[in-house]
Structure formats: structure tokens, C-alpha cells
Write a protein that binds this DNA or RNA. Structure first.
Lengths: 146, 146
DNA sequence: CATTGAATAATTGCACACAACTTAGTTGTG
DNA sequence: CACAACTAAGTTGTGTGCAATTATTCAATG
């Protein structure tokens, strides 16, 4: 066992990249990336919302989202709209094509759930809870929380 | 709770980015990134080795490692050497400066261990084991294992 | 010995992440 | 109203990840 395998952080880093590669494989026929898929998931669930709200949910800033959303717009998956009452805000709305993808990509959650190799829903929930606690704890070390 | 928070993959993705930001914070005084730090950890532990071996341990290909190592070389942390007996192979050796950093960065493992918020070594080991199983399972979905 | 095939790094192109900065629009205060 | 402070999104620059390709070297085979 190599030294890095003793580290929590490396196993996290490694698991995330393996997961992203698995999503890339599943999403390739639609030319989507994992972060783009996450945007669709949020839009399917919560509907139209601002770039800021999207960034809060996904923990991504405009430096990441702006070009990502531009690519999704060019694929006709989302539509950008300026809010009349506050011209600073841009809302991101799913297009009819995005609704179609909700059906076409319906197989992905179960495919990924199976690919995790986790035995049951309970262990998945446990892992999620552990990771969320870790994320919160890590955030405390970051000065940007001030 | 947002929809993405119910997903194992998102909690992984999120935890990894939180961890990388925490490392970035700690490593900033030395101008190092987390992947660069990982290379140092491997070199400190196992000493000089080829780009391939480094890539096997960190699960990174030459497309990622080549420019990363070039940056580390320009910071005088590593030295590239062609192997005489096989001119295809490039070995990466830590410089004296890298050895210095081993001492200067000695506080980081415990700082990160504390920042994870994990209560004890046993729960850390458990999480690592779970993540390694998940990484392996995810790999099976990837055709590149063939 | 010449040719072919495999191995090893490096390069190229694309898509994130994220810090730092810019631009445009809004709000609060006098 | 004037204007500073704030906010939202976009832009820029750097550093990964990773697929695909290229260049070089080595090894095996006839």
C-alpha cells in the first residue's frame, strides 16, 4: 500500500475522479459533463433560478458557471433571461430539450447507484452524512466563511 | 435539503473540493497545489521514480503530470533525468529543496486530519476503506480497465 | 540488419475550478 | 438628486484532469 493510500484526502480525491469518469462514460452520448448534468438535476428539481442560486446549491462561483452555462445554452439545454425588476440577475431556465433529457437520462441514477458498489440505501445515506460533515468541517478551515 | 444533497456523488464531489481548498490555503505560502503536494508526498516516501510509476500511484496520466512536473521543476523541487539504459523513461528525483519542504510542511498532515472533523483514527480508516471500495467499483464501469 | 510493434513521455485540445478583477445595475444615505 | 457601498454576472489567468495524438526509443522477428 502506497503512502497516499493512507490519506483520507487522497481516497476522496481518487474516488471523486473515478466517479466523474463513470459519469463521463454514461453522459458521453449526450455530450454532457458531470457538472453540466448537475445543473440539469437542479433545474429539473427546482426549476428556473438565478446563476447565484445555482452557484449556492452546487458550490460553484460565476467563474465556473458562466462559461459552463454558455456551453449549455449553445446546446439549447437552457435559456438565459434578464430579470426585469433587477437587471443584474440572470435566470437560467430549462428548455423543452432539457425536459426531454430528464426522460432520456432517467437510467443514470440507478446505474450510478449500482456502480458505487454500496450494499444498500442505508450505507449510502451513512456515507453521504459522513461526507457532508467532513465538507462542513473542512469549510471551517477556509477564511472565506467569514 | 437540495436534490443534489441526496446524491452520493455530489457529496463526494463537494467534499473533495472543500478538501482541495483547505490544502490550497495551507500550501499557499509555498506556492504549491494539492496535486503538486501529492507528488512530494510520494517522492518523500518512495524516492526517485519514473513518470509512469508516479502516474500509477496518483492515478494521473502524462497529460496531467507532464505540465505539473514542469512547474515543479521550475520551482526547483524536482529534477528530470533520462534513464541511460532506457532513454524512453524519465525519472523524477526530489531536490534538496524538496527535502527541506518535508520538514517545513510537516504540520500539514495533522492540520488536515484535524480539519476533517473525524473523531478518531478508526473512523478515518473506515472512511478510507469505504472510498477505496467505491473507487474500485466505479472503475469496473470504466471500459479502460480492459 | 531492417522492419514492425510496443512502450514511454510529451503535446494538444477541451472543460472544469477558483482567485482576482471588471462591468453593470441597485440601494442606502445625506 | 448625488454618490458611495454593495451586488450579480462575466472576464481573465493559472492549474489541473483526461482523451487523443505524436515523437522517440526499445524489443522482437524475420
Amino acid at each position: 500500500m502506497a503512502i497516499v493510500d493512507e490519506m483520507v484526502c487522497f481516497s476522496l480525491y481518487s474516488a471523486t475522479r473515478a466517479t466523474t469518469r463513470a459519469y463521463a462514460e454514461l453522459l458521453a452520448p449526450w455530450g454532457l459533463t458531470y457538472p453540466q448534468y448537475l445543473v440539469l438535476v437542479v433545474l429539473w428539481s427546482d426549476g428556473e433560478q438565478s446563476v447565484n442560486e445555482l452557484g449556492d446549491l452546487l458550490q460553484l462561483d460565476s467563474g465556473t458557471l458562466s462559461p459552463l452555462l454558455r456551453r449549455m445554452e449553445s446546446k439549447l439545454l437552457i435559456e438565459r433571461k434578464r430579470v426585469h425588476s433587477d437587471q443584474r440577475i440572470v435566470t437560467i431556465a430549462p428548455t423543452p430539450r432539457a425536459a426531454e433529457l430528464r426522460r432520456e437520462l432517467g437510467h443514470i441514477p440507478s446505474a450510478i447507484a449500482h456502480a458505487t458498489g454500496l450494499p444498500d440505501l442505508e450505507s449510502a445515506r451513512e456515507l453521504i452524512a459522513t461526507l457532508q460533515r467532513l465538507t462542513t468541517a473542512m469549510g471551517e478551515l477556509n477564511p472565506k466563511d467569514a
